[in-house]
């Protein structure tokens, strides 16, 4: 295990604005853990949806450009991992692996799948490189920040750094779809019985509540066109979490966050007896456990106010 001190970071379109508290809390927590997140200086939208049609090369251009930029911007001595590579490094030992970390589940999905597709299709890689006038050689490894904490930092080490264990806080982990699936390509965790979020929450001292809806879809972008069905899906997830007597929910995706936090406004109007449930980004709980300044946490951005439960458990004064 190489000690990581610097990490290239791709925020994506939502993290500077709508999901600013996800971005901030990860950056600040990482600093406390001794990891410096370095944002790519020149990045664009990743496309948000991985192009599933085989002939759609256009959809691969943006993510490939981001990967190529990451390869170029990684300074020579930064987060190089010779031993932990899985993409073609055996056949191309001259190219060292560079980590690129993401927080948004959609960006993670798009970048990781693009990287994999290019590694399996030399023709597409050559074609896209020529079009972009880049020379991307598959030497970037896309990693979610949770994955870095699990595989490179270690949840045990993390547990040792916790200043305020979030004991007694009953949290349901929620994965959603993009983080885990398709599992063959994402290879983050088991698609039906994942454990990365559970282990992460345990290392913060939380009481993890297992619930069957952790990898169900929240309705995703259908909220644009089919609000009824999207709200119903989110309601089912939240209601089940309540049935399991959870105090809060932890997740990592800004789309899930919107459907499951902000949309509780409509859900509570629509379904009588619905009890609102505070929803956190995983990193907000990390920041709380590391006793980060509350101002940086921006808890006021939540639709469902998390303060009552945090005050009740004495995590904030």
């Amino acid at each position: 295990m190489t000690k990581i001190t610097k990490l290239l970071y791709y925020p994506g379109c939502t993290l500077h604005e709508k999901a600013r508290h996800l971005d901030r809390t990860v950056r600040e927590s990482a600093k406390i853990l001794g990891i410096n997140l370095i944002e790519l200086s020149n990045w664009t939208c990743c496309g948000a949806a991985f192009p599933l049609a085989c002939d759609n090369k256009m959809g691969l251009l943006a993510p490939t450009r981001i990967l190529a930029t990451a390869a170029k911007e990684a300074p020579n001595n930064m987060n190089i991992h010779n031993n932990t590579s899985d993409i073609k490094s055996e056949t191309r030992p001259e190219y060292q692996q560079v980590y690129l970390t993401t927080l948004c589940a959609f960006c993670y999905n798009v970048l990781k799948r693009t990287n994999r597709l290019l590694s399996e299709d030399e023709y597409k890689l050559r074609k896209i490189n020529e079009f972009l006038e880049e020379n991307y050689q598959l030497n970037v490894k896309v990693k979610h920040f949770l994955e870095i904490l699990r595989d490179d930092y270690g949840f045990d080490t993390l547990a040792g750094k916790i200043k305020q264990p979030l004991s007694d806080l009953k949290v349901v982990p929620y994965y959603g779809c993009q983080l885990l699936r398709p599992a063959k390509e994402m290879q983050l965790d088991d698609p039906e019985q994942p454990s990365i979020m559970e282990n992460f929450l345990q290392s913060l001292g939380c009481e993890v509540v297992d619930f069957p809806f952790k990898n169900e879809c929240c309705g995703s972008y259908q909220i644009i066109d089919n609000e009824d069905i999207a709200l119903e899906l989110s309601y089912k997830i939240l209601n089940n979490a309540n049935k399991h007597r959870a105090d809060a929910m932890a997740l990592s995706c800004p789309v899930c966050y919107y459907n499951l936090d902000k949309k509780q406004e409509q859900i509570s109007e629509r379904y009588s007896g619905f009890k609102k449930l505070p929803v956190f980004y995983f990193s907000e709980l990390l920041a709380l456990a590391l006793k980060m300044d509350l101002k940086l946490l921006e808890l006021s951005r939540h639709y469902v106010d998390p303060m009552p439960i945090l005050l009740d458990k004495n995590f904030v004064n």
Partner: peptide
């Protein structure tokens, strides 16, 4: 109101 990525993803699909 919606997160940017939700809109991008939705419009690319629909």
């Amino acid at each position: 109101e919606v997160p940017q990525q939700l809109l991008v993803c939705g419009l690319r699909k629909l």
